[in-house]
Design a binder for these strands. Structure first.
Length: 601
RNA sequence: GCCGAAGUGGCUCAGCGGUAGAGCAAUUCACUCGUAAUGAAUAGGUCGUGAGUUCGAUUCUCACCUUCGGCUCCA
């Protein structure tokens, strides 16, 4: 049966996996019973409980999502925390009663009659949207019957362990012009143990929250003075610079050139690029000498101007033009989230200009570059190919050819990928890279997009071997995505315990008592000389206290120096992760540190 | 932007119609110390902002700002 499933489940459910708070684990996928049906049934139990407690509540939709389920209700005043507790108690009764979950179908007209009788306007709207002659399926458990495509588990008793996790507003059909409904989220499992494990995972995610660690580790600052505009603190700048250095090294090796384009550019340019018409709501504008300007929300137009600044021969191509560009976008206030979602961020952008027959090689080069970049952090990743959306520019033939080339490159490289039909940008198909972090969450970072729009709007051209003018192919890509966001992902992935090469402070020298200070200072100088980022703690505190502070600051190595070390000219090494490593000569320690940094482990 | 919740010293939080309190951090003093917290003392807050109610507001009401959980959007 083609299904109400599609009509009932908003597309947002599929995107859930990308969301900031979403937590997925490999453990959840594919094991045990079919969790989709399980969670879907759980949402019915939720709706059943709500209808029992407040019969006047209207039901909208209640699908399973990546992690659990929700149900949207229309109820005056919404639901309070106390209401949730009452609902959970009622759900427990429904589970305990162990109703059989039965499916039945009705012809469309009879289905409409039943729903009218139930007085469920949202359900009515859904069925009315279905084609004539369709058989409509319903599921019944005890005194509760809901329009639903299923599938479901067989008995309510199967849903032994559940928890309602949050309440939020959500628009009917996800459209803000529609009425705001109240959405109740929940999670459930066949056993108590699984629920506890899941809740523990949520706790772990909370403990790793980059906003908390960012403050504790003094990496960045968020201030009311600039909502969505993060301040980087000294240690945050060190981290960012490390990401930039690594990025530049890989890019120069891959034959890129780097540019920097202005932050503020004339309205005329944004009109030419199309942003003034299509992106103005997200742009910050200023008036300078009675002329309109905009702060760049994207780097593309600047790069196009650089390309167009002189004539090009096919012999110049490909040109791989990178830019670490700080862009500003007026994101809606409710979407801001730490460093993950901000209004000013640094894109590790690049625009590649090429001839059509260079496409396959260039795209392969980008995929390899991104692969190399991610593996340097130990990240595993997955790849998605997004194809032509309904409203797209460019001919269908161009799209098909371009999609074929993207897919061909991935196939040839042996990169596994999934296809998202119709999910490409209107100006070209794209490949997305999703990295998987230590908690099993996935984050979209890199994207490679063919751009059919910019070359045309900016009338870019090069002279071919035939002496004629040709329009170059432009590929637009990012690897980190946004540096600030990538930093946030790293913070959470490592729980603030960065590997040695990424630690803003790599070594801290701790003196045991005052008479060891001169030797400690000598050591500090030697460490710095060796290129390590080292600090010194000479305070008159007990060594246990200093160790505790260094440990909380998550410094990878502590060098403890007392009389013994001063006399022997050695260092006592303590590792953040492995504890006391004993006494080493400074040379030995430096050699080890160098090796560890080189391995990026 | 929308729905819901919250904003009290640097941090974590208590309090509440009669103009604020703890722990940690900070500062000072003493201790000179061997692998995750030595002790004592001191200082620090127009209780997010602005109105209103009241004899009196941090406390009640409203508006706004910011943050948090979602929706939406996305790097």
């Amino acid at each position: 049966m083609p299904h109400q499933a599609e009509a009932l489940d908003p597309p947002a459910a599929d995107r859930k996996k990308e969301q900031v708070a979403a937590v997925t684990t490999d453990r959840d996928a594919g094991k045990g019973p079919d969790m989709h049906a399980f969670w879907h049934s759980s949402s019915h139990v939720l709706a059943h409980a709500v209808k029992r407690l407040w019969p006047a509540t209207k039901l909208a939709i209640g699908p399973a999502i990546e992690n659990g389920f929700y149900y949207d209700f229309d109820r005056e005043g919404g639901f309070s925390t106390e209401d949730l507790e009452a609902i959970e108690r009622e759900m427990a009764k429904i589970v305990k009663a162990n109703y059989k979950i039965e499916r039945f179908t009705l012809p469309r007209e009879e289905a409409l009659a039943l729903i009218r009788e139930q007085d469920e306007p949202y359900k009515l709207e859904m069925v009315e949207a279905l084609p004539e002659g369709e058989e409509i399926s319903f599921y019944r458990q005890g005194d509760f019957t809901d329009l639903c495509a299923g599938p479901h588990v067989r008995y309510t008793r199967q849903i032994r362990a559940f928890k309602l996790t949050s309440v939020s507003g959500a628009y009917w059909h996800g459209d803000e012009k529609n009425k705001m409904l109240t959405r109740i989220y929940g999670i459930s499992f066949p056993t108590r143990k699984e629920l506890e494990d899941y809740l523990a995972l949520l706790e772990e995610a909370k403990a790793r929250d980059h906003r908390k660690l960012g403050r504790e580790l003094e990496l960045f600052l968020l201030s009311e003075a600039g909502p969505g505009f993060p301040f980087l603190l000294p240690k945050g700048v060190v981290l960012k610079d490390l990401l930039v250095d690594y990025w530049k090294k890989l890019h120069y090796e891959a034959g890129y050139v780097l540019i920097q384009t202005p932050m503020i550019l004339s309205r005329k340019l944004w009109e030419e690029s199309g942003h003034w018409d299509h992106y103005q709501d997200n742009m910050y504008t200023v008036t300078i000498d009675q002329e309109d300007y905009a702060v760049k929300p994207m780097n593309c137009p600047g790069a196009m101007l650089v390309f167009r600044s002189k004539p090009h021969s096919y012999r110049d191509l490909p040109i791989r033009m990178g830019e670490l560009g700080l862009v500003h976008r007026h994101e809606k206030s409710g979407t801001l989230h730490g460093l993950m979602r901000v209004r000013a961020f640094t894109q590790d952008d690049a625009h590649l200009f090429m001839t059509p027959d260079q496409m396959a090689d260039e795209i392969a080069g980008i995929v390899r570059l991104i692969h190399g970049l991610y593996t340097g952090f130990g990240f595993d990743y997955s790849v998605e190919l997004s194809t032509r959306p309904d409203k797209a520019m460019g001919s269908v033939e161009d799209w098909t050819r371009a999609e074929g080339i993207l897919a061909g490159v991935l196939d040839k490289l042996g990169t596994p990928y999934t296809v998202n039909e119709g999910d490409g940008a209107f100006y070209g198909p794209k490949i997305d890279f999703h990295i998987r972090d230590a908690l099993g969450r996935s984050w979209q970072c890199g994207t490679v997009q063919l751009d059919f729009q910019m070359p045309q709007r900016f009338e870019l051209e090069y002279t071919g071997s035939d002496g004629e003018k040709h329009r170059p192919i432009v590929v637009h890509r990012v690897a980190y995505g946004a540096l600030e966001r990538f930093m946030a992902i790293l913070i959470e992935h490592f729980a603030g315990k960065f590997p040695l090469w990424l630690s803003p402070e790599q070594v801290r020298v701790l003196s045991i008592s005052q008479q060891n200070a001169p030797y400690a200072e000598e050591l500090l100088a030697a460490l710095k000389e060796a290129g390590l980022r080292a600090e010194l703690d000479l305070r008159d505190e007990k060594i246990g206290y200093k160790i505790r502070e260094a440990q909380l600051a998550k410094v990878p190595y502590m060098l403890i120096v007392g009389d013994k070390e001063t006399e022997g000219g050695t260092v006592s090494v303590r590792s953040r992760d492995r504890g006391d490593l004993g006494t080493l000569s400074l040379a030995d320690f430096l050699a080890r540190a160098e090796e560890e940094q080189a391995s990026r482990a």
